[in-house]
Design a protein around this nucleic acid. Structure first.
Lengths: 267, 267
DNA sequence: AGGGCGACTTGATCTTGGTTAAGGGGTCCG
DNA sequence: CGGACCCCTTAACCAAGATCAAGTCGCCCT
């Protein structure tokens, strides 16, 4: 199982969205490097999830007793919308997307999850079916946690339930934020915001690694591949240079200000 | 306190979004009329909220003991983003919008709440601050429920906590759905979807009343007022005729099919 | 080396929504 | 009655994505 994904919690940057109240998103990214790759045990990763923060060891063990670590190659469908939600997933390595499928077969990515994040917990709580499709976009190592164990854990640990509430709320805000971004920012502003979200830096020159390919990024910000190319071209005058997955931002602050000041820009 | 808002749960139609896990949205609308106006007591309305379904009478009373019914005129700011969230609201009558403010002062409406819905509960669960602004858009009668009472109720009734989890999840789906709509549907498709969501009918001729004015509707679907005019003009050939807030759809099924078939239409 | 493929870029053209500006038609109020 | 708003519509223009169609580059495979 070898993967090329860059390490950070790719789900957080910018304003992703969707299935699973992981809400790891307030965390600022360090430079995107493969930090999790094999460096932590499943237990450590799970205990570090915001959702399971402070979980008792024996509860954790019971949870993991009904789990399995699996590896899946890129392009593998994890589940389809409407499938019975009998488990949720924790990403140890690689990346997974959640997406909706339009009538004409086009997909729009609603969220992307990277190492150290979990998703689809929420599906088990209401309808018991996944509302979206999920596919592996970078060869991945995942933990599948069974529905039964999760629900048991949830009911046996009220604090967990409340943490989960808080996580869902936080995640909701991300979604709401993304909606306003889609409504009031131009595509290039969304791209710029995404890039800015990839680095904790607030000024100076920075190199960031795109956590996934441009097709995916385009879908993520709601434009077409070709348009993304053009946008990146136009951003060059603002000191944004890309080569492959590497992006150099000459002046983070400049970019940010340009992004904000262009308020009126709605396409 | 006289209001003109049309009665149904205006928050549900189509794919709204945002603050407050009311998630009343699965409910299909009956004809939009003023059904709640003075016809139900506060207790009845609250007990009918999905969130408080099956609540015990004494728990309910305790909750309402720390509440107040207030009336607010249109254009009143209920709270601003960042304000301390010391209560949540239940709409008895009228309508309230939740919106984000862009740097340049433009607002984008993220959600609209009508009679029989509640909002902003979620704000009290994490940061304790409202993430968005809220303003009354139709003279409204509201119940303000205190934070303390709500949290007490939540902690004293675990079933409530789980219902709230489910409600949040449901609400999250709406948000996710809205995000994909924004990404993969054209403006006119979103308008059409909104109109279709205003009626339970699936075929034949229907009259619907827009639950709010066109400026608001435009913001709701993420376009400008002028564009909405154009869109409605273009929809005329599909049998959609508007005069004021009344919209007549000659053939619901035709409109729906046109909306779906145009899959590729992105802008 | 050569073929094929996937990811990305570029260009020409078309559509459409934003922008700006003007105007129509209510209603309220002096 | 006249004027001030408010809400909405229209029209003209423009910028920017979408679309369609090549075309490039790197990489894997044989």
């Amino acid at each position: 199982m070898e993967t090329k994904v860059s390490g950070g919690p790719v789900s957080c940057p910018c304003r992703p969205s969707c299935e699973g109240p992981t809400a790891d998103c307030d965390r600022t990214l360090t430079t995107p490097q493969r930090v999790f790759k094999g460096s932590r045990s499943a237990q450590e990763v799970v205990a570090a999830l915001p959702l399971f923060d402070g979980i008792l060891p024996d509860v954790l063990n019971r949870l993991l007793a009904d789990s399995a670590t699996i590896t899946r190659r890129r392009s593998t469908l994890l589940f389809g919308a409407g499938d019975e939600a009998d488990c949720f997933y924790i990403v140890l390595d690689g990346a997974v997307k959640l997406f909706a499928l339009a009538q004409d077969g086009r997909e729009s990515i609603v969220e992307i999850f990277g190492p150290g994040t979990s998703f689809a917990e929420a599906a088990m709580l209401s309808t018991g079916r996944f509302p979206l499709h999920s596919e592996v976009i970078e060869d991945a190592t995942l933990i599948r946690v069974g529905r039964r164990a999760f629900l048991y854990t949830l009911h046996s640990d009220h604090a967990l339930a409340y943490r989960m509430l808080a996580a869902l709320v936080k995640w909701n805000r991300r979604l709401a934020g993304e909606i306003s971004d889609l409504k009031e920012l131009t595509p290039w502003q969304r791209v710029a915001e995404f890039l800015l979200a990839q680095t904790p830096a607030t000024e100076g020159r920075v190199e960031v690694l795109l956590p996934f390919n441009k097709e995916v990024l385009a879908s993520r910000v709601g434009i077409r591949r070709e348009s993304l190319s053009r946008v990146l071209g136009r951003l060059r005058v603002l000191g944004v240079h890309t080569s492959g997955n590497a992006v150099r931002i000459d002046d983070v602050d400049l970019l940010r200000r340009a992004c904000f000041e262009a308020g009126s820009g709605r396409s």
